[in-house]
Design a protein around this nucleic acid. Sequence first.
DNA 1: GAATTGTCGATTGTCAACAACCGACAAAGC
DNA 2: GCTTTGTCGGTTGTTGACAATCGACAATTC
Lengths: 226, 226
Amino acid sequence: MNRQIKHLPRSTFRDHIAEQLRDLILNGVLRPGEPLLEVQLAEQFGVSRGPLREAMRELVDEGLLVVRPYAGTTVIELSAKDIREIYSIRTALETLAFEQAWDRRDAAFHAELDRRHAQLVAAIDAEDEVGSIHAELDLHSLVFETADNKLLSRMWSILRGRLQIYWVTHHEAHGRRGPYRDAHLVYVESAKGDDIGRMVSELRRHMRRGADRTAEFVGQHVRLQG
Amino acid sequence: MNRQIKHLPRSTFRDHIAEQLRDLILNGVLRPGEPLLEVQLAEQFGVSRGPLREAMRELVDEGLLVVRPYAGTTVIELSAKDIREIYSIRTALETLAFEQAWDRRDAAFHAELDRRHAQLVAAIDAEDEVGSIHAELDLHSLVFETADNKLLSRMWSILRGRLQIYWVTHHEAHGRRGPYRDAHLVYVESAKGDDIGRMVSELRRHMRRGADRTAEFVGQHVRLQG
DNA sequence: GAATTGTCGATTGTCAACAACCGACAAAGC
DNA sequence: GCTTTGTCGGTTGTTGACAATCGACAATTC
């Protein structure tokens, strides 16, 4: 009677493809605006269009792709307004994550914080731009994982995906990330400290800086849509 | 050159079905845990399984349905922990919505606020339980609409869907909603006032009350999952 | 009798063909 | 010349059939 453990869902083609497609998008292989042809992608993945379409729909609902009936699917293009929206929501949710994670912080949390920060610094020093984007988002992901809130994690993954698309596709035009080594050091130190008030205000400063930086850039180089 | 207006996407079977299915779920016709059979539903909607599966996947990604490969799809069952998660996130996001909507409030906003509140009161007085659930959520939706933040609206719709599933399926066991007439009057009055600080603290009180009420109920009547 | 194995029906996952639709270009009309 | 209309290639939307997998129950073994 104690067969509590549900079967681990076997993976299906659809899930596998969704994962691969997501990687392709989040690593900038498929760029915003570029049309995704079903027959071509299906052949490329070695499946028929059915599972591929379902995988694409998953990414549409995640907000990574946008579809117009009978006119095709493309990677989302983010406007300046979109960036502002993302950062405002991110600030609210990451603050909530810290509140919920605060009492769960332990030695393992601190260690993991240092580990991810070290990876970020290493990527920055190696001038691995895409790697440093991943590393930075991984660092920020930790607090969401620690908060132990499934829905919150899901919403973070939606935000994260959009941020990643934006940064990966535009990082060449941005400056180097070097100056942000110190910023993240402050973030990490605050997260390890005992004053949640300080953490929250540091977080808000951090977010404001990120939002200003990207919004300013979008204003310069990308057609404004809103 | 000023053909700025993109074609309004023609509706597809898939979209139409997703909408109908969503209504079925959110009105409690399809109850949590109940299996959704593809062939049966496809026949019922008069389409083949392809579009139906894509519509179901859309609802899966919205968090209304849950799927286990080769074992079927069911309406999500919410645990006590899920309810807590929803309310914590909802508090953060509705607060943000008020911050962003605050300067956009105008006469039309106030009128719409009154209109939706009147509808809520009417539903309560008519003892139309399901109607009052819809009306209450409609009332709270207004601030998200006014905030003019697409992503925030989308996240609210995710939260709203889950709340609606929970309340609609459990409202018989809950008490009448009568006592909450006054609570919403305070909410509306605060939203019309000039003090956003008061609004936020009223909102938090409002959310705490809702969370306590549902969590307590879930603890009593539903198998705890977390 | 309890646990294991085998079989079966039902359901989901996948496929390849067909139909509907869009965008672009060319021809016709004013 | 400008607008309108018609055609065409290509892409997406939809379908029905086929394959793979699961859960339950019966048969088997210890």
